[in-house]
Write a protein that binds this DNA or RNA. Structure first.
Ligand SMILES: [Mn+2]
Ligand SMILES: [Mn+2]
Ligand SMILES: [Zn+2]
Ligand SMILES: [Zn+2]
Lengths: 158, 158
DNA sequence: CTTCTTTTTGCAAATGATTTGCAACTGCAT
DNA sequence: ATGCAGTTGCAAATCATTTGCAAAAAGAAG
């Protein structure tokens, strides 16, 4: 099992190895896909590159508006949808909140959400991934994608 | 690994053992909790008992309205919330759709969603459950609950 | 069974997140 | 510089779910 940790949670995690920030080339991907590189989109992907947490649309909008106040929330949503379509970002719908996004750069991982703080901790387990595929296979299916989220609280050390 | 299957999917699954329909006593639970047994609530829990799939609020409303046309969708939502609060039912927010519900009777299980048909197949893996707990523990957490959903399609047998 | 108090209901309006119609605007290939 | 398809901001629309409120029903008491 590999354990990553992003911004907010660094320091909370014990055995943790920093993730080699993949630094996606969003602009290149957009261009390659024949999608126009507009000012709003540049600002938004710039924010995504500078980010290693899991912001929601409103948070991305706030950060974008700080750079260019003319950007609209609609455009943030539209851009996230475009990037998602390109496979450049992943959308997570953690329970009880709006969708949150992250660059699709690094290796696949799943999330542990701290119920008290809202912190999102990333982890990866080949064993679990293998088991998922095995289960699906037994049922006659191929896994296209999956969602594994652990919701928990810090273990009381007393 | 144990494999269950409910209504919609029976016949699609190979190695499958029918689940021993737990038949919850919703009325007793409501009464015990000091919650009034009204006509709408009786109809709704009656539907839940007769169900072994994962209907959403609108579907429960339709089935309820067929029995008592005066029932409102609001009441369905309110009743689901009450039952959820009592721990009598579970709410699932599968991707891209409204919440779906199921009685909290049987043993814990997770779901495989057929991307083509929408069928929901239940499965349970102690190995995965153990791994989840182990991962959380290593991160210093206790798992309160989790969400594991596999989205896949039938394996082409050719 | 009647009364009384509290909970619950149906309906309509409100929410919250996300999407969409549309006219004005802007990348970017000629 | 020109032209047009692709984009944008804004307001209005959606969708699932929740909520305010006055009327109706549950159930404890007598
Ligand atoms: Mn992540
Ligand atoms: Mn189920
Ligand atoms: Zn995974
Ligand atoms: Zn599970």
């Amino acid at each position: 099992m590999r354990i990553f940790a992003t911004g907010v949670v660094i320091g909370h995690v014990g055995a943790m190895t920093d993730r080699a920030a993949p630094k996606r080339d969003y602009e290149g991907e957009l261009k390659r896909a024949g999608i126009r590189l507009t000012r709003p989109r540049k600002v938004i992907v710039g924010i995504l590159q500078a980010t290693d947490d899991h912001p929601d649309a409103l948070e991305i909008f706030r950060r974008a508006a700080a750079i260019d106040p003319s950007i609209s929330l609609s455009t943030v949503y539209r851009t996230m949808k475009v990037l998602e379509g390109l496979g450049a970002i992943h959308r997570h719908a953690f329970e009880g909140g709006p969708s949150r996004f992250e660059g699709a750069g690094g290796e696949h991982h799943d999330h542990l959400i701290d119920l008290d703080t809202g912190d999102v901790i990333e982890f990866q387990s080949d064993k679990i991934e293998d088991l998922q595929n095995e289960i699906a296979r037994r049922l006659g299916y191929d896994v296209v994608h999956h969602r594994l989220e652990l919701y928990g609280r810090k273990r009381r050390k007393a």
